Amino acid sequence: MYLGADVLDTGSYLTTVNELCDQLPALRPELLWYVTSHLRTRVDLDGVTKVLVEEEKGAPIGTAFSLMTGLPLAMARHYPYEFPSRQVAFSSEYDRSTLNVNGIDPGDRVCIIDDTLSTGGTVAALIEAVRDLGAEITSVAVVVEKADNGGRELLERDLGVPVHSLMTIKVSPDEVHVVEGIA
């Protein structure tokens, strides 16, 4: 999945282009199933009432996770609706924009699912929105964590939310190195 992934320099960070996150090449169902089933084993879902995912890159994983667990899927979208939602600004490794969190109700217990944790900016904004909506974040589950970009520290230390990941990677200009976890 990450071995042989292309590396791009965004000017601020080294980022990867791969099958799971970018659908380059097209995402094989067996890879999505493999990743989702392994991610499911890392997360305690006792008391969780909803899964929240950001629409762009986390949607395939979050959708599969929702189907696998039977938990309702809430979506954070880049465009607003005329219906009530919570809009939050975020800054991530590759984007600065706003997200509109839909489908979260007061009292929900939410697990956030995402493809990659790098700086933590996107997930931190989702945590803020969920808390503003009167719901609770139980945990964050990601497939890939980029070491040395500060995301885990932001979420766990500063925001008090446990993070579960399947693999930790380090990205150099020439390659992706799997530090820990599945390759």
Rank of each mutant, 00 (worst) to 15 (best):
P173Q: 13
I113L: 07
G134T: 09
E82S: 14
Q23D: 13
V163N: 02
G134M: 10
T122D: 01
Y94M: 09
G103Y: 03
V161T: 02
T98C: 09
L99V: 04
L27V: 03
P106D: 12
V51E: 02
L14I: 04
T122C: 06
V7E: 07
G120Y: 01
V35L: 12
E128N: 00
S85T: 12
P106C: 14
C111G: 03
S85K: 04
A64W: 01
M1V: 10
F90V: 06
G103H: 03
E30Q: 13
A59W: 08
E153I: 13
R40Y: 09
Y34W: 12
K50A: 15
I137Q: 02
A89K: 14
R96H: 12
A141L: 05
A59R: 07
V142N: 03
L126M: 06
H38F: 14
L14P: 03
D22T: 05
A124M: 05
V51F: 02
A76Y: 09
P25F: 02
T98A: 11
R86G: 06
L39N: 06
M1P: 07
L117R: 01
S97T: 02
Y79A: 11
L73Q: 06
R96P: 00
G134A: 12
T36G: 08
T16I: 09
E180R: 15
A141V: 09
V101D: 03
V17F: 04
V142S: 07
V88K: 10
T63D: 00
V43K: 00
F90A: 05
L133D: 04
S172K: 12
A135F: 03
V88L: 08
G160N: 03
Y13R: 09
M1L: 10
S92H: 13
S12Y: 15
L20M: 06
A89R: 15
Y2G: 01
D105L: 15
G181V: 11
S85L: 07
V110F: 03
R77Y: 15
L71Y: 02
T10H: 07
I112A: 03
G151C: 00
I169Y: 02
A141G: 13
A141K: 06
D9G: 12
G134S: 10
S172N: 13
G181T: 12
T138D: 04
L52S: 08
E56I: 11
D9V: 15
V163H: 01
K50R: 15
P29N: 10
V110P: 01
T119G: 09
A76K: 06
R96N: 11
P72R: 12
L31D: 05
P72K: 14
L3A: 13
T10L: 11
S37W: 13
D114A: 08
R152W: 04
Y2C: 05
H78W: 07
L20A: 07
M68Q: 11
D6H: 14
A64N: 02
A74R: 02
G121D: 04
E180M: 13
T122H: 05
Y2D: 02
V35G: 02
L99E: 00
E19F: 12
T119I: 01
V53E: 03
A135Y: 01
L117M: 07
